[in-house]
Protein backbone atom coordinates (compact mmCIF):
# COMPACT_ATOMS: atom_id res chain seq x y z
CA UNK A 1 0.00 0.00 0.00
CA UNK A 2 1.40 3.35 -1.01
CA UNK A 3 0.73 6.85 -2.20
CA UNK A 4 1.33 6.81 -5.94
CA UNK A 5 1.93 9.77 -8.16
CA UNK A 6 0.84 10.27 -11.76
CA UNK A 7 0.18 12.94 -14.33
CA UNK A 8 -2.18 13.28 -17.23
CA UNK A 9 -2.86 15.62 -20.11
CA UNK A 10 -5.95 16.69 -22.04
CA UNK A 11 -6.50 19.13 -24.91
CA UNK A 12 -9.85 20.55 -25.97
CA UNK A 13 -11.68 23.19 -27.97
CA UNK A 14 -15.02 24.85 -27.33
CA UNK A 15 -17.54 26.74 -29.47
CA UNK A 16 -18.65 30.28 -28.64
CA UNK A 17 -22.42 30.81 -28.71
CA UNK A 18 -25.29 28.74 -30.02
CA UNK A 19 -25.38 29.03 -33.79
CA UNK A 20 -27.52 25.89 -33.88
CA UNK A 21 -30.34 27.75 -32.14
CA UNK A 22 -29.88 31.29 -33.41
CA UNK A 23 -28.78 33.77 -30.80
CA UNK A 24 -29.26 37.48 -31.39
CA UNK A 25 -28.39 40.22 -28.93
CA UNK A 26 -29.03 43.96 -29.09
CA UNK A 27 -27.63 46.97 -27.26
CA UNK A 28 -28.40 50.67 -27.01
CA UNK A 29 -25.93 53.39 -26.07
CA UNK A 30 -26.63 57.04 -25.28
CA UNK A 31 -24.85 59.93 -23.65
CA UNK A 32 -26.02 61.88 -20.64
CA UNK A 33 -25.98 65.72 -20.78
CA UNK A 34 -22.52 65.76 -19.19
CA UNK A 35 -20.90 63.24 -21.48
CA UNK A 36 -21.22 60.03 -19.55
CA UNK A 37 -22.45 57.05 -21.49
CA UNK A 38 -25.23 54.61 -20.69
CA UNK A 39 -25.27 51.11 -22.19
CA UNK A 40 -28.71 49.51 -22.07
CA UNK A 41 -29.04 45.75 -22.38
CA UNK A 42 -31.41 43.03 -21.24
CA UNK A 43 -28.51 40.62 -20.82
CA UNK A 44 -27.97 39.17 -17.35
CA UNK A 45 -24.83 39.50 -15.23
CA UNK A 46 -24.49 36.13 -13.48
CA UNK A 47 -21.73 37.38 -11.25
CA UNK A 48 -19.05 36.83 -13.86
CA UNK A 49 -18.72 40.58 -14.42
CA UNK A 50 -20.62 41.15 -17.64
CA UNK A 51 -21.46 44.75 -16.76
CA UNK A 52 -17.80 45.61 -16.26
CA UNK A 53 -16.69 44.09 -19.53
CA UNK A 54 -19.49 45.80 -21.49
CA UNK A 55 -18.42 49.09 -19.93
CA UNK A 56 -14.82 48.56 -21.07
CA UNK A 57 -15.93 47.62 -24.58
CA UNK A 58 -18.16 50.69 -24.84
CA UNK A 59 -15.44 52.96 -23.42
CA UNK A 60 -12.82 51.64 -25.84
CA UNK A 61 -15.10 52.11 -28.83
CA UNK A 62 -16.29 55.61 -27.94
CA UNK A 63 -12.88 56.66 -26.72
CA UNK A 64 -13.57 57.54 -23.07
CA UNK A 65 -12.29 56.09 -19.78
CA UNK A 66 -14.28 53.08 -18.53
CA UNK A 67 -15.55 54.93 -15.46
CA UNK A 68 -17.50 57.25 -17.77
CA UNK A 69 -19.72 54.33 -18.79
CA UNK A 70 -22.67 52.94 -16.82
CA UNK A 71 -24.32 49.68 -17.80
CA UNK A 72 -28.03 49.07 -17.24
CA UNK A 73 -28.94 45.40 -17.62
CA UNK A 74 -31.66 42.86 -17.19
CA UNK A 75 -34.82 44.93 -17.54
CA UNK A 76 -37.29 44.02 -20.27
CA UNK A 77 -38.96 47.45 -20.16
CA UNK A 78 -35.76 49.27 -21.05
CA UNK A 79 -33.26 46.81 -22.49
CA UNK A 80 -33.50 45.52 -26.05
CA UNK A 81 -33.59 41.79 -26.67
CA UNK A 82 -30.80 39.44 -25.65
CA UNK A 83 -31.13 35.67 -26.04
CA UNK A 84 -29.57 35.18 -22.62
CA UNK A 85 -26.37 34.65 -20.72
CA UNK A 86 -25.31 31.10 -21.54
CA UNK A 87 -23.38 29.13 -24.18
CA UNK A 88 -20.24 31.25 -23.58
CA UNK A 89 -21.99 33.92 -25.60
CA UNK A 90 -22.33 36.99 -23.35
CA UNK A 91 -19.07 38.78 -24.06
CA UNK A 92 -19.02 37.80 -27.73
CA UNK A 93 -22.63 38.51 -28.69
CA UNK A 94 -23.45 41.45 -26.41
CA UNK A 95 -19.92 42.82 -26.85
CA UNK A 96 -20.38 43.00 -30.62
CA UNK A 97 -23.77 44.66 -30.20
CA UNK A 98 -22.26 47.24 -27.82
CA UNK A 99 -19.45 47.99 -30.29
CA UNK A 100 -21.95 48.64 -33.08
CA UNK A 101 -24.08 50.88 -30.87
CA UNK A 102 -21.06 52.71 -29.50
CA UNK A 103 -19.69 53.34 -32.99
CA UNK A 104 -22.93 54.98 -34.03
CA UNK A 105 -22.93 57.12 -30.88
CA UNK A 106 -19.27 58.02 -31.40
CA UNK A 107 -20.02 59.19 -34.93
CA UNK A 108 -22.72 61.61 -33.69
CA UNK A 109 -20.36 62.76 -30.94
CA UNK A 110 -17.64 63.52 -33.49
CA UNK A 111 -20.12 65.34 -35.75
CA UNK A 112 -21.17 67.60 -32.89
CA UNK A 113 -17.53 68.18 -31.96
CA UNK A 114 -16.76 68.97 -35.59
CA UNK A 115 -19.44 71.66 -35.62
CA UNK A 116 -18.08 73.15 -32.42
CA UNK A 117 -14.49 73.10 -33.70
CA UNK A 118 -15.44 74.03 -37.28
CA UNK A 119 -13.57 71.11 -38.81
CA UNK A 120 -14.54 67.87 -40.53
CA UNK A 121 -15.59 65.00 -38.28
CA UNK A 122 -13.19 62.72 -40.15
CA UNK A 123 -10.30 64.90 -38.96
CA UNK A 124 -11.07 64.23 -35.29
CA UNK A 125 -9.83 61.62 -32.87
CA UNK A 126 -10.37 60.84 -29.20
CA UNK A 127 -7.52 60.77 -26.68
CA UNK A 128 -9.15 58.14 -24.48
CA UNK A 129 -9.12 60.61 -21.58
CA UNK A 130 -12.38 62.39 -22.37
CA UNK A 131 -11.25 64.81 -25.08
CA UNK A 132 -11.67 65.10 -28.82
CA UNK A 133 -8.66 66.42 -30.73
CA UNK A 134 -7.94 67.52 -34.27
CA UNK A 135 -5.59 64.96 -35.78
CA UNK A 136 -2.14 66.47 -36.13
CA UNK A 137 -3.15 69.61 -34.21
CA UNK A 138 -3.92 68.37 -30.69
CA UNK A 139 -3.94 71.92 -29.29
CA UNK A 140 -7.28 72.30 -31.04
CA UNK A 141 -9.59 70.20 -28.88
CA UNK A 142 -12.89 70.02 -27.02
CA UNK A 143 -13.89 67.93 -24.03
CA UNK A 144 -16.59 65.28 -24.42
CA UNK A 145 -18.30 66.99 -21.48
CA UNK A 146 -18.70 70.13 -23.60
CA UNK A 147 -19.67 68.16 -26.70
CA UNK A 148 -22.48 66.44 -24.81
CA UNK A 149 -23.74 69.73 -23.40
CA UNK A 150 -23.72 71.22 -26.87
CA UNK A 151 -25.56 68.23 -28.34
CA UNK A 152 -28.24 68.33 -25.67
CA UNK A 153 -28.83 72.07 -25.27
CA UNK A 154 -27.56 73.77 -28.36
CA UNK A 155 -27.50 71.52 -31.39
CA UNK A 156 -30.42 69.21 -30.61
CA UNK A 157 -28.55 66.02 -31.39
CA UNK A 158 -28.94 62.66 -29.66
CA UNK A 159 -25.52 61.12 -29.08
CA UNK A 160 -26.77 57.57 -29.25
CA UNK A 161 -26.49 54.36 -31.15
CA UNK A 162 -28.15 51.05 -31.81
CA UNK A 163 -26.32 47.75 -31.94
CA UNK A 164 -27.35 44.32 -33.09
CA UNK A 165 -25.37 41.13 -33.43
CA UNK A 166 -26.79 38.06 -35.10
CA UNK A 167 -25.12 35.04 -36.61
CA UNK A 168 -27.73 33.34 -38.79
CA UNK A 169 -28.95 30.04 -37.36
CA UNK A 170 -27.33 26.91 -38.75
CA UNK A 171 -29.66 23.99 -39.42
CA UNK A 172 -27.81 20.65 -39.50
CA UNK A 173 -28.18 18.79 -42.77
CA UNK A 174 -30.21 15.66 -42.06
CA UNK A 175 -28.07 12.95 -43.64
CA UNK A 176 -24.52 14.32 -43.43
CA UNK A 177 -24.79 16.54 -40.36
CA UNK A 178 -23.16 19.41 -42.26
CA UNK A 179 -23.57 22.44 -39.97
CA UNK A 180 -21.84 25.47 -38.57
CA UNK A 181 -21.97 25.14 -34.76
CA UNK A 182 -19.87 28.23 -34.15
CA UNK A 183 -17.82 30.94 -35.80
CA UNK A 184 -14.99 30.73 -33.28
CA UNK A 185 -13.51 28.27 -30.83
CA UNK A 186 -11.51 28.70 -27.65
CA UNK A 187 -8.80 26.15 -26.85
CA UNK A 188 -7.13 24.63 -23.83
CA UNK A 189 -4.52 22.13 -22.75
CA UNK A 190 -4.25 21.01 -19.12
CA UNK A 191 -1.64 18.90 -17.35
CA UNK A 192 -2.73 17.55 -13.96
CA UNK A 193 -0.54 15.90 -11.37
CA UNK A 194 -2.18 13.68 -8.75
CA UNK A 195 -1.41 11.44 -5.84
CA UNK A 196 -3.58 8.37 -5.35
CA UNK A 197 -3.67 6.46 -2.09
CA UNK A 198 -4.08 2.87 -3.25
CA UNK A 199 -5.27 1.86 0.21
CA UNK A 200 -8.14 4.37 0.51
CA UNK A 201 -8.67 5.23 -3.15
CA UNK A 202 -8.40 8.89 -2.31
CA UNK A 203 -7.09 11.26 -4.99
CA UNK A 204 -5.23 14.48 -4.24
CA UNK A 205 -4.73 16.84 -7.15
CA UNK A 206 -1.31 18.37 -6.54
CA UNK A 207 -1.03 20.73 -9.49
CA UNK A 208 -3.01 21.75 -12.54
CA UNK A 209 -1.25 23.66 -15.28
CA UNK A 210 -3.85 25.14 -17.62
CA UNK A 211 -3.08 26.81 -20.92
CA UNK A 212 -6.12 28.59 -22.35
CA UNK A 213 -6.42 30.31 -25.72
CA UNK A 214 -9.32 32.72 -25.49
CA UNK A 215 -9.03 35.11 -28.42
CA UNK A 216 -8.40 38.20 -26.37
CA UNK A 217 -8.24 38.85 -22.64
CA UNK A 218 -10.45 41.95 -22.54
CA UNK A 219 -9.81 42.35 -18.82
CA UNK A 220 -7.00 40.04 -17.68
CA UNK A 221 -8.01 40.09 -14.01
CA UNK A 222 -11.57 39.06 -14.85
CA UNK A 223 -10.30 36.40 -17.22
CA UNK A 224 -8.18 35.08 -14.39
CA UNK A 225 -11.10 34.86 -11.94
CA UNK A 226 -13.15 32.94 -14.46
CA UNK A 227 -10.38 30.57 -15.50
CA UNK A 228 -9.29 29.78 -11.94
CA UNK A 229 -12.90 29.16 -10.91
CA UNK A 230 -13.48 26.99 -13.96
CA UNK A 231 -10.37 24.96 -13.26
CA UNK A 232 -11.60 24.31 -9.72
CA UNK A 233 -15.01 23.27 -11.08
CA UNK A 234 -13.37 20.85 -13.52
CA UNK A 235 -11.51 19.12 -10.68
CA UNK A 236 -14.73 19.06 -8.69
CA UNK A 237 -16.55 17.38 -11.57
CA UNK A 238 -13.76 14.85 -12.00
CA UNK A 239 -13.57 13.66 -8.41
CA UNK A 240 -16.59 14.71 -6.38
CA UNK A 241 -19.84 15.96 -7.81
CA UNK A 242 -23.08 14.19 -8.56
CA UNK A 243 -26.70 14.44 -7.44
CA UNK A 244 -27.08 10.68 -7.97
CA UNK A 245 -23.99 8.86 -6.71
CA UNK A 246 -25.28 5.44 -7.78
CA UNK A 247 -26.84 6.52 -11.09
CA UNK A 248 -29.02 5.16 -12.64
CA UNK A 249 -30.24 4.24 -9.15
CA UNK A 250 -32.17 7.25 -7.82
CA UNK A 251 -31.25 6.77 -4.15
CA UNK A 252 -28.66 8.59 -2.03
CA UNK A 253 -29.02 11.96 -3.78
CA UNK A 254 -27.54 14.86 -1.84
CA UNK A 255 -29.91 17.59 -0.69
CA UNK A 256 -27.45 20.10 0.80
CA UNK A 257 -23.78 21.01 0.83
CA UNK A 258 -23.04 18.49 3.57
CA UNK A 259 -24.16 15.63 1.36
CA UNK A 260 -23.30 17.01 -2.06
CA UNK A 261 -19.54 16.81 -2.26
CA UNK A 262 -17.28 19.52 -3.58
CA UNK A 263 -13.65 20.25 -2.82
CA UNK A 264 -13.09 22.74 -0.04
CA UNK A 265 -10.22 25.21 0.29
CA UNK A 266 -7.96 22.50 1.68
CA UNK A 267 -8.48 20.38 -1.44
CA UNK A 268 -7.46 23.06 -3.91
CA UNK A 269 -4.66 22.14 -6.27
CA UNK A 270 -1.78 24.46 -6.98
CA UNK A 271 -3.22 26.15 -10.06
CA UNK A 272 -1.31 27.73 -12.90
CA UNK A 273 -3.06 29.67 -15.65
CA UNK A 274 -1.38 30.68 -18.89
CA UNK A 275 -3.35 32.60 -21.50
CA UNK A 276 -2.70 32.78 -25.23
CA UNK A 277 -4.55 35.21 -27.49
CA UNK A 278 -5.40 34.44 -31.10
CA UNK A 279 -8.05 37.06 -31.86
CA UNK A 280 -11.21 35.67 -33.43
CA UNK A 281 -12.24 37.24 -36.70
CA UNK A 282 -15.72 38.17 -35.47
CA UNK A 283 -15.09 38.67 -31.75
CA UNK A 284 -15.37 42.01 -29.95
CA UNK A 285 -11.72 43.13 -30.03
CA UNK A 286 -10.98 39.50 -30.90
CA UNK A 287 -12.54 37.91 -27.81
CA UNK A 288 -13.90 34.36 -27.73
CA UNK A 289 -16.08 32.85 -25.01
CA UNK A 290 -13.93 31.17 -22.35
CA UNK A 291 -16.71 30.78 -19.75
CA UNK A 292 -17.56 27.14 -20.25
CA UNK A 293 -14.49 25.57 -21.79
CA UNK A 294 -12.24 26.49 -18.89
CA UNK A 295 -13.91 23.83 -16.71
CA UNK A 296 -13.58 20.98 -19.22
CA UNK A 297 -9.95 19.86 -19.69
CA UNK A 298 -9.24 19.18 -16.00
CA UNK A 299 -11.71 16.26 -15.95
CA UNK A 300 -9.92 14.00 -18.46
CA UNK A 301 -6.50 15.28 -17.36
CA UNK A 302 -7.24 14.10 -13.80
CA UNK A 303 -8.68 10.80 -15.08
CA UNK A 304 -5.56 10.18 -17.14
CA UNK A 305 -3.33 11.12 -14.20
CA UNK A 306 -5.15 8.60 -11.98
CA UNK A 307 -4.41 5.90 -14.53
CA UNK A 308 -0.79 7.01 -14.72
CA UNK A 309 -0.59 6.73 -10.92
CA UNK A 310 -2.26 3.39 -10.23
CA UNK A 311 -2.87 1.74 -13.60
CA UNK A 312 -6.67 1.55 -13.49
CA UNK A 313 -9.13 3.29 -15.79
CA UNK A 314 -12.17 4.91 -14.23
CA UNK A 315 -14.38 5.62 -17.20
CA UNK A 316 -17.40 6.67 -15.13
CA UNK A 317 -17.63 10.09 -13.48
CA UNK A 318 -17.08 11.03 -10.73
CA UNK A 319 -13.84 9.20 -10.01
CA UNK A 320 -14.67 8.31 -6.41
CA UNK A 321 -12.47 6.41 -3.94
CA UNK A 322 -15.01 3.59 -4.12
CA UNK A 323 -14.62 3.27 -7.89
CA UNK A 324 -10.83 3.36 -7.65
CA UNK A 325 -10.74 0.69 -4.94
CA UNK A 326 -13.12 -1.56 -6.86
CA UNK A 327 -10.97 -1.19 -9.98
CA UNK A 328 -7.78 -1.90 -8.04
CA UNK A 329 -9.40 -4.97 -6.54
CA UNK A 330 -10.49 -6.18 -9.99
CA UNK A 331 -7.00 -5.52 -11.33
CA UNK A 332 -5.40 -7.50 -8.48
CA UNK A 333 -7.68 -10.47 -9.03
CA UNK A 334 -6.93 -10.62 -12.76
Amino acid sequence: MAIRRGRGVAAINYPTGMNLGGDPTQALVHSTPTGNFMVTLSSVDLGQGMKQIMAQICAETIGVPTDRVVVDTADTDTGPHCMGTFASRGTHRAGNAVIQAAREARQVMLEVAAEELEVNASDLETDGQGNILVKGAPQKSISIFDVALSAHFKRGRSISGRGMFLIPRSYPEKETGAMKPSTCYAHACTVAEVEVDDETGEVTVLTVKNVFEIGRALNPKMVEQQLVGGSWMGISHALYETTEPYYPNRDHGGTDFNQYLMPGPGDLAQTEIIVLERPSADGPYGAKGPGEMCANPQIPAVANAVFDAVGVRIDTLPITPERILRALKAQASN
Binding site: D45, G49, K51, Q52, A55, Q56, I57, A59, E60, G63, P65, T66, D67, G128, R216, A217, L218, N219, P220, K221, M222, E277, R278, P279, Y285, G286
Partner: peptide
Protein backbone atom coordinates in the same frame (compact mmCIF):
# COMPACT_ATOMS: atom_id res chain seq x y z
CA UNK B 1 -2.89 41.23 -32.72
CA UNK B 2 -2.41 44.94 -32.22
CA UNK B 3 -1.79 45.95 -28.64
CA UNK B 4 -2.78 49.62 -29.07
CA UNK B 5 -5.96 49.80 -27.02
CA UNK B 6 -6.74 52.03 -24.03
CA UNK B 7 -9.43 50.23 -22.07
CA UNK B 8 -9.43 46.71 -23.53
CA UNK B 9 -6.71 44.50 -22.14
CA UNK B 10 -6.52 46.58 -18.97
CA UNK B 11 -7.10 44.85 -15.62
CA UNK B 12 -9.68 47.42 -14.48
CA UNK B 13 -11.26 46.63 -11.10
CA UNK B 14 -14.87 45.50 -11.40
CA UNK B 15 -17.28 48.27 -10.54
CA UNK B 16 -19.60 45.78 -8.82
Amino acid sequence: RKDDLHEIGQPRPRSD
